[in-house]
Design a protein around this nucleic acid. Structure first.
Lengths: 336, 336
DNA sequence: CTGAAAGCGCTTACAG
DNA sequence: CTGAAAGCGCTTACAG
């Protein structure tokens, strides 16, 4: 390993001066800078990240914290992971991924190691014990999602209101007045504290009330048999001609169930995926009309917000990102 | 931050002795050990990972390296990421994720920083320039996948032969003799060097020849319109009654295409997903019969193999993991 | 503009 | 069994 000491000797300067040019932290004359740069490239010097971290008290590592053993991560999580990593990388940061329990126990242990400068917290619950742990540790963080009293913490989240509104707009523009919101939870006990469910439901209720629509919400499990699923959705609101489904997996299963029981999509009923991966659209017949989950944007913005904070740059305001409309063939005017 | 120095002073010993009990590296009398442990818990000592890394010349961080901007990662990649992270975590290691270009340029830069002890290389190509970079850097690594001349490097991979064989067995047991293997590449130029495609094709050709079956292979793009996709698959081998499809997205799209052109599954043609996420099964009608991709197992085994190497433990032999059969409704005897 | 030196919080021969 | 001390490779006041 080539160290600053090697470079300094080779260039005939002190290691402090080498450090100044490597980090561009102090003015150095062009001549010595040139000598040092020549030495660096000649020797193949690469600054050691660990020594730098110890001396500067900043590791330039951030952790992406997600709950293990709770509900499985959604399809768009890969996008989220990779876009957060790419954004961190672009800023010279590394992203470690930390699977921890939701109670914050393990998170506290990990923070104590002093490996990370900040944390990106995924799958935030309305009441989230991990936040106490972060505050107690004094570790800067940004939330992907929101607690119940949001605004209190830096966060980025899906704009559920705008997303649900856009979906409802699409259906009402087609002429639908009776709508069902299907929430496909995964049967986990904690799902009621899960923001996306709570906020989608809230947004739906509000919009339906405002517009005088006939709307209802139903919770369904992730593992119901598809015809049972279809039957339950119909029974919950038999008059509904437009159905919004939270998460792509449930939306596609509902499509399969409707087909199986002979309910034609979109002739008899329109189905729309809410916060789905764009790839989910193409796998059904007809292709699923959907609101795309903004996974990549959230990953990027979350990482960006956290790192700006760590770099003492002007903070990014909390940001809500709506899903985007992806046309498909599963929606049409009611009655054909 | 509470340091070893604080603990040492509080317990009336040297920091070396504190280190010995923290790491259990040298015998310490029960009495002093007790004093030190009391001091640690009283002060809330947590060993600093960065200082430890610098002094011991081991960071206990491993990188999961995946190609950015090449084909998108598959559905089962989340499972892969999280299972690798969990396995690393269980061994006291951290997992950073590194999006790097396939040419190895950026990888070399990152390795130079000295942040990681080892690398888990995803999406290995048959000829992979990143491996040269790793060898030149002297960084231990394990491959998820195999190069052309495998055996040379530690690796874990899908057992394509066994997986394809199990799929063919399932179809021939039902009575099928004419089979098509559909490979859904993503239109990327480098896909021919991509192991899963090459090895699946090879395995298929071998098995088909051995058993005297009538088999053919066809490459299709990821973005073909679904009816065009169905037509192409039929045109490539009109007599085929059994179809294997590499990757779930393409399999589901083919199902949608068959439905749309009026080809009944499984009455007229059987369709099977090869290396699919288990959740993909439930979203089609009929549910897709599939061989599940062993993402979680590969993540765990890959991390385990790498870490054993880093810890100088008995090496894990290269391991090939077959996909597992998941019954569905998309396969049946030919002709109904 | 440049350097000598302390210090980041540990580990690890070495000595006793 | 325990300690004094060097050292890991940097950064950063401080002095000049």
């Amino acid at each position: 390993m080539v160290t600053m000491k090697d470079v300094a000797e080779h260039a005939g300067v002190s290691i402090a001066t080498v450090s100044f040019v490597v980090n561009d932290t102090k003015p150095v004359t062009a001549a010595t800078r040139a000598r040092i740069e020549a030495a660096m490239s000649e020797l193949g010097f690469r600054r050691n990240a660990v020594a730098r971290a110890l001396a500067s008290r900043r590791t330039r590592i951030v952790a992406l914290v997600y709950p293990v053993l709770e509900h499985p991560l959604s399809t768009s999580s890969v996008e989220f992971f990779t876009s957060a990593a790419a954004a961190a990388s672009a800023r010279g940061y590394h992203l470690v991924i930390w699977p921890v329990s939701n109670d914050g126990r393990e998170l506290g242990e990990l923070l104590g190691q002093g490996l990370v400068d900040g944390v990106l917290l995924m799958e935030v619950q309305l009441e989230d014990p991990r936040i106490d742990v972060l505050e107690r540790a004094g570790t800067p963080f940004a939330l992907i999602g929101r607690t119940r009293d949001y605004g209190k913490y830096p966060h980025v989240d899906i704009d559920f209101e705008a997303t649900v509104q856009a979906a409802v707009d699409h259906l009402t523009a087609l002429g639908h007045r009776s709508l069902t919101l299907v929430i496909g939870n995964r049967g986990e006990p904690s799902y009621r504290g899960y923001g996306p469910f709570a906020r989608s439901r809230e947004a739906f209720d509000t919009i339906v009330a405002e517009r005088g629509l006939d709307g209802r919400t139903i919770d369904v499990g992730q593992s119901d048999e598809v015809t049972a699923l279809a039957d339950r959705v119909i029974a919950a609101h038999p008059e509904a001609t437009g159905i919004l489904v939270l998460n792509d997996h449930t939306a596609l299963r509902l499509m399969a169930g409707f087909r199986r029981i002979g309910r034609q999509v979109p002739r008899e009923v329109s189905v729309m995926g809410l916060l789905a991966a764009v790839e989910s659209g193409a796998v059904s017949d007809p292709p699923l009309t959907l609101m795309r989950a903004p996974g990549p944007e959230l990953g990027r913005l979350g990482a960006e917000a956290l790192i700006r904070n760590l770099e003492n740059e002007e903070p990014l305001p909390p940001r809500l990102v709506p899903g985007s409309f992806e046309p498909g063939g599963s929606t049409a005017p009611p009655g054909g």
